[in-house]
């Protein structure tokens, strides 16, 4: 029972990127292939040193909400963003970086985590992945 999950990571907030990484890891763990397509604010998280820079999507309160959530996450032993990303890659997860976002936002390849990115592409690359996927989500 193989199958495939393709996620668009458009949001850059910590909680949304973390949810995307959890779903990506979940898909791989359940025996599916997984592709994550990082675009717009999501792509900021693939910049060097950027993975953990996201705010909270709501209740950020100038960073107070974010630090409260992070503290709680440590208490209940939630895996870090870096660990989730490492696991995702170890289980064979694929990452595509959006070239148009790079042009719009002036991001160069050397600004990005090339150790994580498998491919650079545009909407056609996403559609070609998604047409073979049973699950596709826009996050």
């Amino acid at each position: 029972m193989p199958g495939k999950t393709t996620l668009i990571v458009h949001s850059g907030e910590m909680d949304k990127v973390m949810s995307a990484l959890i779903i990506g890891n979940g898909a791989l763990s359940m025996g599916m292939e997984a592709t994550m397509y990082f675009t717009f604010w999501g792509l900021q998280r693939l910049k060097k040193g950027g993975l953990d820079k996201g705010k909270l999507s709501t209740m950020n309160m100038g960073g107070l909400g974010l630090s409260m959530v992070k503290k709680k996450m440590r208490q209940v032993n939630v895996a870090s963003m870096e660990q989730l990303m490492k696991d995702y890659k170890e289980l064979g997860g694929k990452i595509i970086a959006c070239e148009m976002t790079m042009e719009i936002m002036g991001i160069k390849k050397e600004d990005l985590r090339l150790d994580l990115i498998d491919e650079f592409g545009a909407v056609g690359t996403y559609v070609n992945e998604a047409r073979k996927s049973e699950i596709t989500l826009f996050i």
Partner: peptide
């Protein structure tokens, strides 16, 4: 033990691989 979602699933898949 003591790990939460998705770590147990991920660790089992790593071992199966």
């Amino acid at each position: 033990k003591g790990q939460t979602c998705p770590v147990p699933l991920v660790e089992v898949r790593k071992a199966l691989r």
